[in-house]
Computed example of a mutant assay.
Amino acid sequence: MGRPKRIVLLRHGESEGNVDETVYEREPDHALSLTRAGRAQAEKAGARLRELFGDERVSAYVSPYRRTHQTFLALGLDPRLVRVREEPRLREQDWGNWQEREDMRRQKAYRDAYGHFFYRFTQGESGADVYDRVGAFLESLWRSFEDPDHPPNVLLVTHGLTMRLFCMRWLHWTVPEFECLSNPGNGDMRALLLGTDGKYHLDRPFERWCTPESYGYTG
């Protein structure tokens, strides 16, 4: 089995929606573009990735959103070394078509009280829904490792919540553990590294805003 030695997860650069909540009232979430700062963040991430990957091959999967496509293009990776595919299952959590700002602020407050994993936005998704489709993608990804000539690197260009849920699914975190984690910043990344024990380990933890509740069991 050609398991990669690293799986890198990258959050898109700053988008229009990150700086102006009212844009969601006029533009579809999937159509929002990077800001100038977001492009600079993507270019900076690209420099780090080019150094990390060197002349090794990369299998890249990109969320179908405009801002993730723009982020990938701004990375400046060598196209001769990269096999890229659009992957809809890595998209952002769906919040439900156009969004009225005050209504979304109320729903975000409800989500904070109810729990980010279980709260479902009106006409949209819960974190649990995203977890399920990320899990389906993970199964497809794992099957791709059956190719003995699989590239030694995987790159996922996606969104903050999706990154956390991918790691939750891969590393078998509990819901309370997930709830205590903060999103990475725009243009930030995490990597699952293949260790000598044959298991993948996160290169550095996500920041926590609280201590996870214990259910009193370990597995």
Score class of each variant (00 low, 15 high):
36 R>E: 15
37 A>N: 14
37 A>D: 11
38 G>L: 09
39 R>M: 11
41 Q>R: 11
44 K>Q: 10
46 G>F: 02
47 A>T: 05
47 A>Q: 12
48 R>F: 00
50 R>N: 06
50 R>K: 15
53 F>H: 03
54 G>F: 04
55 D>S: 14
56 E>N: 12
57 R>M: 07
57 R>S: 10
59 S>K: 15
62 V>I: 15
63 S>Y: 07
63 S>M: 10
63 S>Q: 09
64 P>G: 12
64 P>F: 12
64 P>L: 12
69 H>A: 14
73 L>Q: 13
73 L>F: 12
75 L>K: 06
80 R>Q: 11
81 L>E: 08
81 L>A: 14
82 V>R: 12
82 V>W: 13
83 R>H: 07
83 R>Y: 02
87 E>D: 07
88 P>Q: 09
89 R>G: 04
91 R>L: 03
92 E>A: 08
94 D>Q: 04
95 W>V: 11
95 W>Q: 10
96 G>L: 05
96 G>P: 03
96 G>M: 05
98 W>C: 02
99 Q>E: 09
100 E>M: 09
100 E>G: 06
101 R>Y: 01
101 R>W: 02
102 E>L: 13
105 R>M: 07
109 A>W: 02
111 R>M: 12
114 Y>D: 01
115 G>T: 01
117 F>L: 03
117 F>E: 00
118 F>M: 11
119 Y>I: 07
121 F>A: 04
